[in-house]
Design a protein around this nucleic acid. Structure first.
Lengths: 213, 213
DNA sequence: CTGAGGTTTTCTGTATACACCGTGAAGTGT
DNA sequence: ACACTTCACGGTGTATACAGAAAACCTCAG
């Protein structure tokens, strides 16, 4: 493992988990001392953080953790909905039906016993299956970039068990649509799922406008 | 101007212009001597090239200029069509109609005297107007990443004057759709333009499968 | 002539030293 | 008392030196 990779992974995890709050100023020397590596790998890690959108470089002040709020959810979904819809449609055309039929079955089980950790694990496997089925590196890269930010959003909108069960059912519909080989069905199921997710988060935002002062 | 920025700009230009052919191995020491800077800025430039998808890091061999072919056009458009369609629709909802009405007028003039340089300049201005109208940094970032690759594709598919005139007319339709404030009209015009562009490039590929041995 | 093993060379990854810029604070002059 | 200037400190940007590893080449044996 390269030191720069380790530094990037550590910093990314801390930002995604909220341990490094938005607005925190990251100094090269400070982080190099804290993580026990030289400034060179830290610089590379900072560059990658900026490229991923997790931090921004302010001239003269240094690198600061980028801000994320529930307001960004709308803008994230404006990109996510068309991209994931397209991905699902292409997966329906090119994927192996048995793979997604199996995933649908797993989501059926997950629907009965909603649990956040395993749910997101399973959803990640579905995303991976779609990625490999589509076989488009440009699409995969963009979706990967998006998912990093979605992890931060997920922290802001803590899911309730009821929503998790609904989400599992919607994921199952997506898998069934892909397995059936019908692009429009897969696209419709994906669009429905994402719009319901967005509606759920928007409802949360309306209920409690400020989750953390 | 930082040395790392200069190095990145120089390398990006050379890759986009084809002076650095795909498959070329870029050594840190070689490029540092050629560009007259140290290895440190070169390393940062390489990282940005890899992040942009213009180069890939092969373990042990170094950084090589990524391959681009007419086969990639299909995959690029699989991402471009949904993203640009979404952007046009959002611009129709949020943009200033007068701006796009003015752009439509400019495209009408460009349609009468097709010229590649000014055409792409004008198209870039339209993209910029859409970006600012939408006001979504995630969408803007992804479109910017895409456009880098589209420049390389443009080199492979040299436009004929007839196609340029058609393209100007299609751009004009997009601007008129956005100016009218009708998202669906803007989306339809965008989808039509992109699909016709793709069809034109696909026709080129069918005609001359190997543009450069 | 071919293959395997060793050596050499060149590469990247990391650490560190130095220079420059920007900012902030303190002191002085008005 | 306020404002302006200057000095100092911390920061990033860049250069370079060193270590480890991998690949290519050369040599020797079969």
């Amino acid at each position: 493992m390269r030191a720069s990779d380790a530094a990037y992974t550590a910093l990314q995890d801390e930002i995604l988990e909220g341990r490094l709050a938005p607005g925190t100023v990251l100094g090269e020397v400070g982080q190099s001392e804290r993580l026990g590596v030289s400034r060179t790998p830290i610089r590379e890690a900072f560059s990658r953080l900026v490229a991923a959108g997790l931090a921004i470089q302010q001239p003269g002040r240094g690198t600061v953790v980028s801000d994320i709020s529930l307001e960004d959810v709308d803008r994230l979904f404006e990109v996510r909905i068309p991209l994931e819809t397209q991905a699902a449609g292409l997966a329906a055309q090119r994927g192996t039906p048995e793979v997604f039929a199996g995933l649908a079955e797993e989501f059926r089980h997950a629907q009965e016993a909603p649990e956040a950790e395993s749910h997101y694990k399973l959803a990640a496997r579905m995303d991976e299956a779609i990625d490999t089925s589509v076989g488009n590196r440009y699409l995969s890269t963009m979706l990967a970039n998006l998912r990093v930010h979605l992890i931060r959003v997920r922290r802001l909108a803590k899911d309730q068990p009821q929503r998790l069960a609904e989400s599992a059912a919607e994921h199952r519909d997506i898998c069934l649509g892909i397995a059936s080989g019908d692009p429009q069905m897969a696209e419709a199921a994906t669009s429905l799922h994402l719009r319901r997710s967005l509606a759920y988060i928007s409802e949360l935002r309306r209920t409690e406008p400020v989750p953390s002062p």
